[in-house]
Computed example of a mutant assay.
Amino acid sequence: MSSVPEGRFRRSSVPLLTPPPRRVTLLTDDGVPVEAVYEPCTAPHGGPGGETAGAPAPAPAETTAIVVAHGFTGAVDRPAVRRAVRVFARHAAVVAFSFRGHGRSGGRSTVGDREVLDLAAAVAWARELGHRRVVTVGFSMGGSVVLRHGALYGAAHPGDGTDAGAGAGADAEARADGVVSVSAPARWYYRGTAPMRRLHWVVTRPSGRFVGRYGFRTRIATADWDPVPLSPVAAVPRIAPAPLLLVHGDRDPYFPVDHPRMLVEAAGPGGAELWLERGMGHAENAADDALLARIAAWATAAPPA
């Protein structure tokens, strides 16, 4: 799967007629149209406890925006993603989008490589809407994308060219102020579990990509990564000073608990917070409402980078 230098991205917003929620099409730097949805914060607001009915809604500049990056075969309208958006919207404004090759977005999935451009466009759109503070929350494949995005578009290493999938023109409008990665792998090409062996069959074999397209409604690119993008374990030390939260289930059937432990170790002392969730499976489908609410509370409370 190809990775080439990612410069300043172009984007266009084409809103539908009846917000909220507001649906748009974003254009990435490499010309892929990406569907995105904006949900305003639904929390009560106004009085001393933020509870006065009918009070004017706070301006976007006063509200954190959470950008949701779904897992492989997900999309903005999948039930688990919609549920996460609803829970997050009780705490913050939310931008959800479909990665390339998923849902109504164009292009083909590169399974975590070029998807960093999709996330960058979504973060920049949140800032266009007026949000000064933007936190990314990614699940599974999306969890690896938010880690790489945090490294490549972060304050410490803005587009320094050390990853061919980075952006020499990466700029502040695409930067995340906090990163939450849920059920992410620590390294590429992992085949240590049966679900991951099946996933590799879907991604690498013509018959598997057929199943992906018509069984999971996911269009998958045929080319191998060249060069291989920055791995999650190599990305996490580069995310600071932005706060980083790693969330993982101790019953994850895809990535066992050595993956989050590798990530938190790579982040270094104080570089990441780890929540190892008892009884949890994998990604957005396994994250219950209580966990999603805790993640949203962390995202809105964590200090900016």
Rank of each mutant, 00 (worst) to 15 (best):
G107L: 03
R23E: 15
G150M: 08
G103D: 12
A121I: 04
V145S: 08
P195M: 11
R108I: 00
A266K: 01
A235R: 09
G154M: 09
P260A: 12
V134E: 09
I295H: 00
A302M: 09
A242F: 05
V116K: 05
A186T: 06
R251L: 11
P48G: 11
R198D: 09
T222M: 11
P33S: 01
G178M: 01
R108F: 01
S144W: 02
A166I: 00
F97E: 00
R205C: 06
H157L: 12
V137T: 08
A120M: 05
R191D: 14
G46L: 04
A156I: 02
G212S: 15
D224G: 12
Y214M: 06
S183G: 15
D288Q: 05
A287F: 06
R175W: 01
M141E: 13
P229W: 03
H45D: 05
A234M: 03
A166G: 15
V146D: 10
T18H: 10
A43E: 08
S183H: 00
P243W: 03
P253M: 13
A221C: 10
G249F: 06
V257M: 15
R100D: 08
Y254M: 13
P185A: 13
S105L: 04
P5F: 07
S12Y: 00
R213I: 03
M1R: 13
L292M: 12
R148S: 02
P260V: 11
V68Q: 02
I295A: 02
A287H: 03
V233K: 07
L117V: 04
G268Y: 02
D252Q: 09
G165W: 12
V180I: 14
I295F: 05
A186R: 10
L152K: 01
G103L: 12
V264M: 09
H282S: 07
